[in-house]
């Protein structure tokens, strides 16, 4: 029986900030159209690891990667890989909503404009589809020309998700996407993640254990640069194998 090709994979991965060994020999494989949550205390390496998947660490001084990061089986750190092409495949949503100081419409189609797409019908169709997928369309459809900065924090974050979806990626990386939002906006983002996993592979970094439990299919626990445990979320939150995982998720760390 042939094993299913993982969507994302890290093999014998080590990463360094200068002399600091930030990620230690990580091996992990994430399946397509699943949500994987990265959890762990601050400084454990989970965000560094997340950012490797669309090469966000490339320009950090002294940053060095060893090993392989694979997208659909292809090493994304090969010299011939174009980072802008990679990022069409792998979108990213950050902790704080970061819309551009432009209209809602221009925010969503920004990636397409960069790609040189000028066809108005394509842009409009993409904007509507992306905003619908990001569960924002009904709230903004009559104000597409309003400044994105006038939206609430929760709406801005969904706008950033719409912007990421507009370029049709297959993977979405989310770095604490709801940590700056109120509970209602958080619930909307979580609901959205649940919907989006039908079409996308999602990796989310979160400090909120319950959120990891609610939204993810798999959970990876990082500690001091090591991937301590990776398993189905249900297993991680009911019967973790490693004592460090148990101590962390039950709040008894340190």
């Amino acid at each position: 029986m042939s094993k299913k090709q993982p969507k994302l994979e890290a093999r014998d991965l080590n990463a360094y900030y200068g002399d600091f060994h930030a990620l230690k020999n990580i091996n992990i494989a994430m399946e397509e159209k699943n949500v994987t949550a990265f959890i762990g205390p601050s400084g454990c390496g989970k965000s560094t690891f997340l950012r490797l998947f669309n090469r966000m660490n490339d320009y950090i001084d002294g940053f060095k990667v060893e090993g392989n990061i694979l997208l659909d089986g292809n090493d994304i750190y090969q010299k011939d890989v174009r980072v802008d092409e990679l990022r069409k495949q792998v979108g990213m949503v950050f902790q704080k909503p970061n819309p551009f100081p432009k209209t809602i419409f221009e925010n969503v189609v920004y990636g397409l404009r960069i790609q040189g797409i000028k066809n108005k019908a394509v842009l409009e169709e993409t904007a509507e589809r992306s905003l619908r997928d990001a569960a924002l369309w009904d709230e903004v459809k009559d104000n597409l020309n309003k400044s994105a900065l006038a939206l609430s924090g929760g709406q801005q974050q969904r706008l950033c998700i719409a912007r990421a979806l507009a370029i049709s990626p297959s993977v979405i990386l989310m770095d604490e996407p709801a940590s700056a939002l109120d509970p209602i906006s958080t619930a909307k983002i979580e609901e959205l993640i649940y919907e989006l996993k039908n079409d996308y592979t999602i990796v989310i970094v979160t400090h909120n254990m319950q959120q990891a439990g609610r939204v993810s299919d798999y959970t990876a626990f990082f500690y001091m640069g090591e991937l301590v445990e990776f398993n189905k979320t249900k297993t991680m939150f009911t019967s973790p194998k490693d004592e460090r995982t148990q101590n962390y998720i039950t709040g008894r760390f340190g």
């Binding site: 439990g213 939150f237 009911t238 019967s239 973790p240 995982t245 148990q246 998720i249 039950t250």
Partner: peptide, 9 residues
Amino acid sequence: FTPVAVDLR
């Protein structure tokens, strides 16, 4: 407390 793991059990 929304317990997990050993606390939940």
